[in-house]
Design a protein around this nucleic acid. Structure first.
Lengths: 141, 141
DNA sequence: TTGCTTGCAAAGTTTTTGCAGGCGC
DNA sequence: GCGCCTGCAAAAACTTTGCAAGCAA
């Protein structure tokens, strides 16, 4: 019963274009949470005329219709994730890669915050920082 | 037994200047987690010749010596917080203000992540999003 | 005095905007 | 065909850098 981008775009009154599908596909096929620039570079070979502005406009629409989430793990640029499930991320302080953290229960934490704040909460983002396995190995040498 | 900026700057080999003290003071005296631009504006009246570049250079040093922490709650710019205790933040999606969330226990959550990830963790940032009390009232009108 | 700091300007990065031509529907 | 979309360029927003003069120690 999963929604596909094509239907959802049409439903929300957006047009379905090759660029939009390509950008969304990139995001579904990678777990690296690419930035706009990275998406742009990856699409250069197959879409040589694609503009970086189109990438920005598209990710903004995809976020608006709920097909992707936007991350900012304390870097200069934003990253995009087609996995819209509510999961924490962890970033390597050495190589900069960002990984997902699945199967972690944080409902007690969220409940505790909801009880203590006077904000009406709508969402959250959890970022962990550390050294990834690869970089641990590399610095062990 | 609290460290003051003056001593800590000297200790780490940085010089103590009026600009550095003023920027740190701004950060200790407000709970609004100002951005570089906001710090700059607040200092304009008393330090009319102060440069924005100095603000950036100074917050970088203050972060380096551990006197402040840097936030990025999904905005275009960074915010700075003189409260270096490990606490979550909540941002209002309407007016953009960022508040602290104190007295919340998230040790179980952190422990759970530490157990499941192969990263060597060094820190974390938790951001909640919602509507602040003021904006709730305003939209109720 | 020594050399880190400041302030200014310029440059670098990331993201947004305006607009003419193009394409989805 | 209508109106949204793309791509280009320019601009905007944020941050960093280079350098000469100034000030902390």
């Amino acid at each position: 019963m999963e929604k596909n981008v094509t239907d959802l775009l049409r439903e929300k009154g957006f047009k379905v274009t090759p660029q939009r599908l390509a950008i969304y596909k990139i995001l579904t096929m990678t777990k690296t949470h690419p930035s706009a620039e990275m998406i742009f570079s990856q699409l250069q070979p197959s879409y040589p005329t694609m503009s970086l502005a189109t990438v920005y406009k598209t990710v903004d629409i995809l976020r608006e219709i709920g097909m992707i989430q936007v991350l900012n793990a304390g870097e200069d640029s934003f990253r995009y994730d087609a996995d819209t499930s509510d999961h924490p991320h962890v970033r390597c302080m050495e190589c900069g890669r960002v990984d997902d953290l699945h199967d972690i229960d944080f409902s007690d934490f969220v409940d505790g915050v909801a009880k203590r704040t006077s904000y009406r909460l709508t969402g959250q983002q959890f970022y962990f920082y550390g050294i990834c396995p690869d970089c641990q190995k590399r610095s062990a040498n």
